[in-house]
Design a protein around this nucleic acid. Sequence first.
DNA 1: TCCTTATACGGAGGCTGCCTCCGTTTAGCA
DNA 2: TGCTAAACGGAGGCAGCCTCCGTATAAGGA
Lengths: 192, 192
Amino acid sequence: MTPRNPAREPRSDARRNRELLIDAAKVVLGQGGPGASLENVARRAGVGIGTLYRHFPTREHLFQAVYRHEVEGLIRLATQLRESPDGVEALRSWMRANVALVATKRGLLVAMSVTVTEDSKAMYTELSARLADAVAALVQQAVAQGVLRSDTTAEDLLHTMYALCYARQPEPGWEAQVLRLLDIFINGLRTQ
Amino acid sequence: MTPRNPAREPRSDARRNRELLIDAAKVVLGQGGPGASLENVARRAGVGIGTLYRHFPTREHLFQAVYRHEVEGLIRLATQLRESPDGVEALRSWMRANVALVATKRGLLVAMSVTVTEDSKAMYTELSARLADAVAALVQQAVAQGVLRSDTTAEDLLHTMYALCYARQPEPGWEAQVLRLLDIFINGLRTQ
DNA sequence: TCCTTATACGGAGGCTGCCTCCGTTTAGCA
DNA sequence: TGCTAAACGGAGGCAGCCTCCGTATAAGGA
């Protein structure tokens, strides 16, 4: 074996366990929030606690990895939806996915907001920009198809969506309410 | 001794220890946030952990007691400031005290926002209303003195203050910035 | 195919905090 | 001064945090 390979690929078991841990953490942190038990995450992933700590030295590392994973999923989804023939429907689907994420991963979002470090701020900035770009592409597509008002911006959509989510979150049944209001908003953006 | 006294006053040691615990919790929770150690609170108060749990059966009971204590302090301050000859200065002092509270008790506020129960929502509603009333009285006083625009509302002030606090909080030095912006805002409300 | 070893795994163990339970102490009434 | 309801304190059992180190294994080279 090559004894000195500074940038070697991670071993296959390491890669697999990392994925397992992130999947488990999605569920456990999403429900339990900032105080959720990391031993519980390791148990659900079927790995030892030592493995968890090797991959994610601190609680924040794990939170960040999960968050990044989720947001990159949304970015991927936006890219896929650019194939869609109906640009407005594409936007609607994408926003539904985003609201669903806020709904199921509430604990995670609270956890992220509790521990704000320089590091997490940088990540947040980077991901926000990429997300906004992905949505802007969807908007442009719909505008080009002639089904959306040409003065629409990605920020209009994102700000409205997050404002609705956060203003409504505590009540039960808020998700349906927000989706209804979003539909109205999107209809308002249609070329008549 | 009267064995059957359903609504007896708490014993003096109980009252004293309750105060000691709230004082200690102010510091410990203000710094440590939601995850702060309750044993640490008891140690700082100089009482046993059992005593803490008798007075505050859950972490939330303690959080709520501290929060109520702080907000009632602000309400008392507003009442005292009604004696002040200069209504605008009184408002300014009061808002400075409020910003200082946000600055030193950040951990507490985060803790309160993480665990939202029916109970805490009711308390929050009640205290918000009383706080708004106290500020409204200060505003009316200043208006009556002819030093403040007569269309000013307590909500204008409170919303502006909290929006500034929460939008700015993470940066270092935010407190001075917020105080400066608040001063400008209050000057804007002066009758010229 | 097998050997070698860098890489990764798992969980025991020490520590801290949570919360309960109960024996001890004390405030305050008569 | 005596009595007792009320309050105190901390031991103890349990759970989670994180580290450390002996064991297992993936994968490059012979």
